[in-house]
Design a binder for these strands. Structure first.
Lengths: 319, 319
DNA sequence: GGTGACCGCGCGAACGTTCGCCCAACCGGC
DNA sequence: GCCGGTTGGGCGAACGTTCGCGCGGTCACC
């Protein structure tokens, strides 16, 4: 009755009841309500070990959007390596969440999680779910690679290396396709030696960059797959005595808050993580309310942010 | 019965029941159980807008520790500025969480949230709660400031500036006390011009650093209150034509994963955020189970990690 | 003025557990 | 052999809602 539903009761009685309830500090018991309504008003969020700033930006946006819609958010973090994914999802399902948002690349190779998401609960994923049938939302990753690479090409670079995330990830492959497409349009031959796999961490990226610059010392530009790794790239480039921006141009992906303040400031393709989070919640709400949703990936546009690391400003003395 | 409780039933009957339950895929309904047990097996986590890497490291550790104990975690993120704190806490309380962990500096100045935490639910906070009576856990922040400053002093620096978080935060005041204590022990006079307030962001820290170096150009060392701001400090120092490490030594706090890969690599006082998260859950579990817990702040030790930004290695060419 | 229809409201079942209480049966001791 | 104690097991209440159904009263129309 007190949930705003249309109960057939005279307006003044309703007002009286509400007044009394208020004065008594009455708060409806969510648990009892959930029991009879068979819905909990709770969303599950499964996130990969969110030390990753990008994932945590997404998570915050998801929680905020969910709360605006009256949902609470139950989180589960997946270990970086390890397959507790199914356990986490099962935990969420047992808690009777109304839907699940997955922001964990691990799901790409976890058929057990995929089955759970497909069969037991409305879900939206940031990553491809094996077997499909789960709506996917994300950014236009091919465009990301293309934009970054095109920009470097337009500055006259011919030897453009790339430090990527793990190849087995779709994001990485999409960005690589964009990178290669841009090269081909410019008449440049893709070269395997210029592509080095890393692990999303600054340390891994630094090692990868050293490898790249050893294999192809003539490299004058690097496209790196996220801002955290970019930190490692900048460090490694400087470690070889080269200057970032002038000797080696760097363009990254994500546009985290710190990107602007790296030395030199980082050119990067902005990925709209907060907006993606909001859209994910919106999509999930539709799916929960029974509206059929397309399982065709919903891709949000990305945007190149030009700063100093790509050599736009060769004069960096004045910051 | 299927919850492992001690029901007086013959062993073989129990085994039979479990077997049948298993074969039927029976999963006890958490909601109904919560209703009668008056406990949900859920913990609430209120986090400040966790774009802050430190908070998100803490959050991940909390969730992991909680899950190990069989708890699920409901999160609420507080807006950076804005007092929706009470709303978030109320939401958690209405969802009948068994306890709340607060990792949001905002609670320091929110008496409404403080009252809720005190009166309605077992709680543990990372920050001082006005009015007390809520167990606080954290790191030895005074020690943090002292360690960093002492190290700079031991390198012969006499003009040591500091770029801080907002003064109204206890963490900041504790660290400042440690900084001043170290100066005094070394016979150095604290100087107001050397202390500049910032807002935890790289951008704010960069501006603060410019201000500091304008006011006191002879500054040869900077103690900055977290790694995110350190990025801004490095950028601003470089922007004035000074070299970090050789001209201006920098020591920070936190030791985030990227600290090692900044250029130059960042000396920083490690704050054990993951361990803090685990201890917080442990403390909360005790508090929930009725064990009286001390409200005396539980302080974990910190550790200075020496890298290049404090000038330990003057030769940085070989990284 | 009487009858019918509609509207406001109250009562009770159901959601799926947990847990206490009672009953029955078996065993042992007197 | 009978009685008491102990143990295994089943039945039903309670947790706090939601929602359907039915009843009673009032108003309007004939």
């Amino acid at each position: 009755m007190l949930n705003g539903g249309s109960v057939r009761v005279s307006p003044e009685t309703a007002a009286r009841i509400v007044a009394v309830a208020e004065s008594l500090g009455y708060r409806p018991n969510t648990i009892a309500r959930s029991l009879v309504r068979q819905t909990t008003g709770t969303l599950g969020l499964i996130a990969s070990d969110a030390t990753d700033v990008a994932i945590s930006q997404f998570s915050v946006a998801v929680e905020r959007a969910a709360r605006r819609l009256g949902y609470a958010v139950l989180v589960g973090h997946l270990a970086a390596e390890g397959d507790d994914g199914a356990d986490v999802v099962r935990m969420l399902i047992e808690r009777r969440v109304d839907g699940v948002i997955a922001a964990a690349p691990q799901v790409e190779e976890d058929p057990e999680v995929a089955d759970l998401l497909r069969a037991y609960v409305p879900a939206v994923s940031l990553h491809h779910v094996p077997g499909g049938q789960v709506p996917v939302i994300g950014s236009n990753q091919g465009e990301t690679g293309r934009l970054a690479t095109e920009h470097l090409i337009s500055h006259g670079h011919r030897r453009i290396g790339t430090v990527t995330g793990p190849f087995r990830r779709r994001v990485v492959r999409s960005r690589l396709r964009g990178y290669e497409a841009a090269l081909q349009v410019a008449g440049l031959e893709p070269d395997e030696d210029l592509v080095v796999e890393a692990d999303w961490t600054p340390g891994g990226a630094a090692a990868a960059t050293h490898l790249l610059l050893t294999r192809v010392p003539e490299t004058t530009a690097i496209f790196v797959h996220n801002d955290a790794m970019a930190i490692g790239v900048l460090s490694a480039v400087a470690g070889t005595g080269r200057r970032v921006g002038t000797d080696v141009a760097v363009v990254s992906c994500d546009d985290m808050p710190f990107a602007e303040y790296l030395t030199p400031s980082l050119s990067t393709v902005r990925v709209p993580l907060a907006e993606t989070g909001e859209r994910a919640v919106e999509l999930l709400r539709q799916s929960i309310s029974g509206t059929p949703v397309t399982t065709e990936p919903l891709l949000l546009p990305v945007e190149l942010i030009v700063r100093d690391s790509c050599g736009e400003e060769t004069e960096q003395e004045e910051e």
